[in-house]
Simulated scan of single mutants.
Amino acid sequence: MKNIKNRLSICLALAVFAGCNSGQTTENNQQDTTATANGTDGWIFLFDGKSTAGWHTYLKDTVSAAWTAQDGELRFNPDVTTEQRGDIVTDNEYENFELELEWKISAGGNSGVIFGIHEDPKFNATYLTGIEMQVLDNIDAEDNKQENHLAGTLYDLIGSKEISQPKAVGEWNQARVRKQDGLITLWLNGVQTAEVKVGSSEWNEVLKASKFKDWEGFAQYAKGKIALQDHGNVVAYRNIRIKAL
């Protein structure tokens, strides 16, 4: 019975996504066109709007079946076997950069944008080395009890409910990550949600208070890959672009 309920929940989430997209056909078609080429002023698109080129599932050679490119969106569908799931990461590594993207989460959903990832078999998950900007339905997701776990926060490190203001489920949110010489700054929908410099006294304080305080590889790599997280919920990303700083 539990499996049947889970499958019904996933189907409902996918139906909500489809319904939200129905009124955005023209907008998505316009975005698809711009996503097929590199942007201006140093911006490079990490997602071409029609394929998963430039990405692979963490510690694998290709992108798993759960991630698909459709209607200008990079979508995750958890309704596949575990072997066909997993976080996807960029083929390339980045050190000083500005990253922009849009995300849309399902009801009760959870995901994340993780950066500074050192892809190595001794680390079996992206979050063991990478730092995360949280993607969340603040209202109904299970992981909404701590303020620094809400949408747009620097996960388990910095954030508050006052500045975490995601749009309603089914609407697109604009996320921005800047990392330069260890200084990390996050924005969600134009509002700055976190800023801290890795290695500073403030960083050491928040790190000590977090779950990551004793993790050997966490935030230890200045240069790394960027991931979109499989947290078991339907999620979509689009207009993913990066600029070297």
Rank of each mutant, 00 (worst) to 15 (best):
N3A: 15
K5G: 01
I10Y: 08
V16R: 12
G23K: 14
E27A: 13
Q31S: 09
A35T: 09
T36H: 05
A37D: 14
G39T: 06
T40G: 08
S51K: 01
A53C: 10
A53I: 14
D61E: 14
A66L: 04
D71C: 05
L74Y: 01
N77P: 09
Q84I: 01
G86P: 10
N92D: 14
Y94C: 05
N96G: 11
E98I: 02
L99V: 07
K104D: 03
A107L: 14
G109N: 10
V113H: 00
G116T: 04
G116V: 02
K122L: 13
N124H: 05
A125G: 07
T126M: 02
T126H: 09
Y127E: 06
L128H: 11
T129M: 05
N138E: 06
E147I: 00
N148Y: 10
A151D: 11
A151P: 12
G152L: 00
E162F: 11
P166I: 00
G170D: 04
Q180Y: 08
Q180S: 13
G182Q: 06
V196S: 00
K197C: 03
G199T: 08
W215C: 12
W215M: 12
G217K: 08
G224D: 04
A227E: 02
V235E: 02
A236D: 09
A236M: 11
I240E: 09
